[in-house]
Design a protein around this nucleic acid. Structure first.
Length: 574
DNA sequence: GCCGTTTTCGGCCCGACTGTTTTCAGTCG
């Protein structure tokens, strides 16, 4: 998808303009456009210029630049800027604490244009004495380089959230803490996280800050004040804690939950209404009187909007939807009635069928689908046709035993590298549910991978495509497939797409899932459970769905058994 | 560069912390 490349180009233009000291609002315009393009669910290359202009933050000029990039693979303005500004400057700016001004001084005075040279110069004390730079700043820069080396990449939500929840639980035990909540991208359930934001109220802020910076995992204290402190954990993860007054908690929570783009939007709206929003509350411009701030609901109400759930706050149309009163009724974890992707000991799962079914029932589920791997996946102990039929018999027997619960007989059939399915049709036709997925040949061409998925989608027996893009966050990029074609084919065949809730997958992601919803494609949220504890991953999947604006009615495993069966028994057109 | 309940020009979100400064600039989120 070209979107990421265009976003990257626009961000680079913004960096270069920043170094040149250009109009900050123009710079912001490029960054905003980049962000909005990145979050688009469809390929911008397929859009007409008129359609592009309807994307917020994109006007005539940027639409022209996008077209230029699509057609020529380059943007003339960017090439010019690259000639004007030394490439080293943007590199230096990637060091935390070094912005455009500092980078420029260092480059112009010392001729330093890469991070290695910068580190050497800082170690030799050669930065001291430059305008605005003394010993402390030099130390900061060295620290910034260290942090950069340790890699401050975004980390998977599934890794960060448990850690963050633990920190919150620990701070909750500090006696003076009243309210405490996660904020930032964690509260919005973004699939990757750069740092942990926590917000609290306290009768003794100093006590909280002390407890915070003295936690055992803290490797380094970046800054510490009475209302704001930042630390770095052993894993290289930054944690920010803000402490505010009780009657500002809602405003602060709204503020620190972001996203930045969402906040800018609502503050602009506030300004137009003669109001000002900051982390302390909503204030009347005329007399400075505070009119809201204790709760987030109050804040939104003060600017004439209904409450907007955190997962939607990405400036992807949620403010406009709130204005019109057409926000979606987002799916909730309690709406989920079953899990349609479950493994057992028959392949690479850890439990027997009855055991895992009873566990699912104890969670309040009404049904599960047993979907072990097929034989092509040798490493996972995939099943032959005969083994599948044995499993079917066992499931039938257990279904007679367990009351008020239903086990659907299924399989996760491997899509072979030529696009054929790993089990014969006469086996697939005997099952309640067939999900299909790719587990090999990831490096095939776009055309081949797309063809494989398309032919699985078309199969009259395949009801669901599992983890459609195959990504493993931080480990493996999504397959290069033509999602436009895949979504179209899924729609034509009413083949459902899975939101795989396994925290490293979260696949489909929020953008594609939203596009799928808008096209009317059925979706399921499944955990791909291999061991009972993994049923708890469902919350990750539900939150991806919420970020995708999905409502309960868009998701198959919120349906009761009868309605789900109707879908499973429906015939495809083909 | 975008955008319109101060509409086609002139605005554009807001504040904390740090360091180098005697009142503020830079950076970050």
């Amino acid at each position: 998808m070209l979107n990421q490349d265009i976003a990257k180009a626009f961000n680079e233009i913004a960096d270069l303009l920043e170094i040149k000291g250009e109009n900050p609002f123009r710079i912001r315009a490029y960054r905003r456009a980049a962000q909005n393009i990145e979050s688009l669910g469809r390929d911008i290359a397929d859009m007409s210029e008129d359609e592009m202009i309807r994307i917020p933050g994109i006007g005539k000029d940027l639409a022209g630049k996008i077209r230029e990039f699509v057609e020529k693979g380059r943007i003339e303005r960017l090439e010019e800027l690259r000639k004007e500004v030394s490439p080293g400057l943007t590199e230096i700016m990637t060091v935390p604490g070094v912005g455009p001004k500092t980078a420029k001084v260092i480059f112009e005075e010392l001729g330093i244009s890469n991070i290695e040279e910068l580190e050497v110069a800082a170690r030799q004390g050669r930065l001291q004495g430059l305008p605005g730079i003394k010993r402390k700043t030099e130390e900061n820069i060295l620290r910034g380089i260290e942090m950069l080396k340790r890699g401050r990449e975004r980390q998977p939500l599934g890794k960060v959230l448990p850690l963050a929840e633990e920190i919150v639980a620990r701070l909750k035990r500090v006696r003076s803490v009243r309210k405490i909540s996660l904020a930032g991208s964690l509260r919005r359930w973004k699939d990757t996280i750069k740092d942990i934001d926590i917000l609290a109220t306290s009768t003794n802020p100093t006590e909280v800050m002390n407890a915070f910076v003295n936690m055992p995992e803290v490797e380094e204290v970046l800054l510490k004040g009475p209302t704001k402190s930042s630390v770095v954990l052993g894993e290289g993860l930054q944690v920010d804690l803000r402490v505010v007054e009780e009657d500002s908690f809602g405003a602060a929570l709204q503020y620190f939950t972001g996203s930045k783009a969402h906040n800018i939007k609502i503050r602009e709206r506030a300004v137009k209404m003669g109001l000002k929003i900051n982390e302390y509350g909503v204030f009347r411009e005329s007399d400075g009187k505070k009119i809201a701030g204790r709760t987030e609901e109050e804040v939104y109400q003060a600017i004439g909007l209904p409450y907007i759930p955190p997962e939607l706050r990405e400036d992807r149309g949620e403010v406009e939807a709130a204005e019109k009163g057409v926000l979606p009724e987002l799916v909730e974890i309690g709406d989920i009635k079953g899990d349609l992707h479950v493994h057992t000991r028959y392949s690479d799962g850890s439990h027997g069928i009855e055991e895992i079914a009873l566990f699912a029932k104890s969670l309040g589920y009404r049904y599960i689908a047993i979907t072990d791997h097929s034989k092509g996946l040798g490493v996972a102990g995939g099943l032959t046709a005969e083994q599948v039929m044995e499993q079917v018999k066992e499931i039938q027997a257990i279904n007679r035993k367990i009351k008020n619960f239903r086990i659907f007989m299924g399989v996760e059939v491997d899509i072979r590298s030529d696009g054929s399915l790993d089990l014969p049709d006469e086996v697939l036709s005997k099952l309640d549910i067939v999900i299909a997925s790719i587990h090999s040949g990831f490096r095939q061409s776009v055309g081949q991978l797309t063809m494989r998925l398309l032919s699985a989608i078309k199969s009259p027996y395949v009801k669901i495509i599992a983890h459609p893009t195959g990504r493993l966050i931080g480990e493996r990029d999504p397959y290069e497939v033509d999602m436009v074609q895949i979504l179209q084919m899924a729609k034509e065949n009413s083949t459902a797409l899975e939101i795989n809730a396994y925290p490293l997958r979260l696949d489909l992601n929020d953008r594609y899932a939203r596009e799928a919803k808008e096209m009317g494609i059925p979706l399921v949220i499944s955990t791909d459970t291999h061991i009972t504890e993994q049923f708890r991953f469902m919350r990750y999947g539900v939150h991806v769905a919420r970020r995708a604006w999905l409502e309960s009615k868009d998701i198959l495993n919120t349906k009761d058994i009868k309605e789900l069966e109707r879908f499973l028994k429906s015939r495809k057109k083909t």
